[in-house]
Design a protein around this nucleic acid. Sequence first.
DNA 1: CTGAAAGCGCTAACAC
DNA 2: GTGTTAGCGCTTTCAG
Lengths: 347, 347
Amino acid sequence: MSNRNIGIKDVAVAAGVSATTVSHVLNEVSYARVSQETRNKVRSAAEQLGYGPNRLAQALRTQRTGVLGLLSEDIATTPHAGRIILGADEAARARGYNLMVINTSGSASLESRRADVEALLERRVDGILYATMYHRSVELPPNLGSVPSILVDSVAADGDIIAVIPDEAGGARVAVRALLEAGHTRIGFINNTTEVPSTRLRLQAFRATLTEAGLDGDAAPVESAASDAQGGYEAALRILAGEEPPTGLFCYNDRMAMGAYRAAAELGLQIPADLSVVGFDDQELIAANLHPGLSTVALPHYAMGAWATEHLIDAIEGKSDLPQTAVRPTILRCPLVCRDSIGPPRN
Amino acid sequence: MSNRNIGIKDVAVAAGVSATTVSHVLNEVSYARVSQETRNKVRSAAEQLGYGPNRLAQALRTQRTGVLGLLSEDIATTPHAGRIILGADEAARARGYNLMVINTSGSASLESRRADVEALLERRVDGILYATMYHRSVELPPNLGSVPSILVDSVAADGDIIAVIPDEAGGARVAVRALLEAGHTRIGFINNTTEVPSTRLRLQAFRATLTEAGLDGDAAPVESAASDAQGGYEAALRILAGEEPPTGLFCYNDRMAMGAYRAAAELGLQIPADLSVVGFDDQELIAANLHPGLSTVALPHYAMGAWATEHLIDAIEGKSDLPQTAVRPTILRCPLVCRDSIGPPRN
DNA sequence: CTGAAAGCGCTAACAC
DNA sequence: GTGTTAGCGCTTTCAG
């Protein structure tokens, strides 16, 4: 158990060497030539005393804190933040970094978000991750630029800060293909009504995938509503009302899929026997607890957090150029998580 | 926008005073007597140059970082972590502190968790919050003791570290009372099977509340199963199978309640007309998206995070004695969140 | 009312 | 091979 009162000096005294030597040995400084014997003495003295480095003092001296700031919007509203933090934390720690987390409100003024960044800068973080809880475009506080920064799950409204986002179109394709491969030819899409990238991108990919499969993508039924269970329920009722209703349903998200389940139940439709359903988001709380389990496309929050952290550290350590990568946001795969809501269409 | 290259010295030069005076003015040191005129000069010079303090250097000098370590178990598995972090972050920032967050695995070895604490200690955090994702007893890494610490949502297996936990019994009472007040007299409980405090405490409170209301608490039907939707479904089918099935159902958590909804639907029971249901946890993703909305008891994660932070800072700043408060864990209220799953029993 | 000097714990030139 | 010295940016006696 490391003793907070032991410094490099105490170790030096105990080992009968100078502080410099202790520093050299403990940090395995490449150019330092210290005899093996001395090294052993130093190490065992450090061990004995329970020495732990004072990262603060190191940071002050080296101008490197080994701390990454994570500004996370609305950290408590979705389970997504947790996955981003986990991905970032694991990637950071693998390289000796730690995370300083600050919650910020997506709806907060630019000024208040500027102050959040400021707090991080005063702590002399080596870089900043700015994470949003859904894929969108953000207006960034100007002081974000004073240190290497990466956007997670969003792109900058202006300018060219490096960013990592989910492959919305790819995710939608995977979802629709799963339905196609199960044999469905009448496939509908229940979409969100709000103006966010995913609304448009998923719809486009939905139609394109059908068309590529030889179906009429443009004619495929689409119903939009609020992106919760109630909206999904209403949209599903509408889309299933026709003469030849779809046998496969792609839903904008898992909450809407949850509503679609209810609509199906009311209409006497069994899932997946009479109706196959695919969701989006992989909100496990919903997807795994619906009956039957909802097959859905996962958003790569963990991967985005890890990717951003990896690359941020590379930039900090001069292993890569941030601007270079910044031209286009990096797009991460959205894999399909198979549960039990997809089956072949009836006859 | 604060300039990272400006130090107290630069401000001093610009204002034509010494660094000491700048420090005195900017920190509003009580015993410092500086003329108003000088103060103004200093402040405007600081403003002009975009000076921001180097918290690292301050910390090294004052032996106070103003950083709290938050060791959160399994941060990504539940949405609970987000609420704890939010509560902690807001409480911390209100007092000038920031959070360094590290994820740790609840199932990880004591040694690996000791290393997590060690990382925090090397950063010289002023105190540590150790948070678990469900109310339980934890074996703590011994080095946690080297700095003021508080447990969030758990109690120490041994020893007397201060802790804050939810009022499980109170929450259960509130839930059962809601059913009672709606007029139900046949009330059942769907419980979890695992050996955690909440399993026992909620059951006890369930029976006690019924008995206090003049019913036979000991005879009230209880069925246990795995704490997910499938378990809730099975337990609900069993509990509703009898001659005179309950008209009100208290469920161990929202996921089990979700299963109970399915069981009710299969049995042709309308909620709340034929069956009233109350959950526990207030997992909004489920509770708000079920139909009808699930009335449920909320766990005070935000409040626990805030409370712990408040008190940790008090202890750090010497405003209270941690040991003193440590005798018994502090218990925070679990309020009922009313939605639409409770109604009067039929006739 | 204001400033000079020392030092928090560490690292990096440079000297020996 | 190892030690001396200076200094990262700040606060805090202590003198004036």
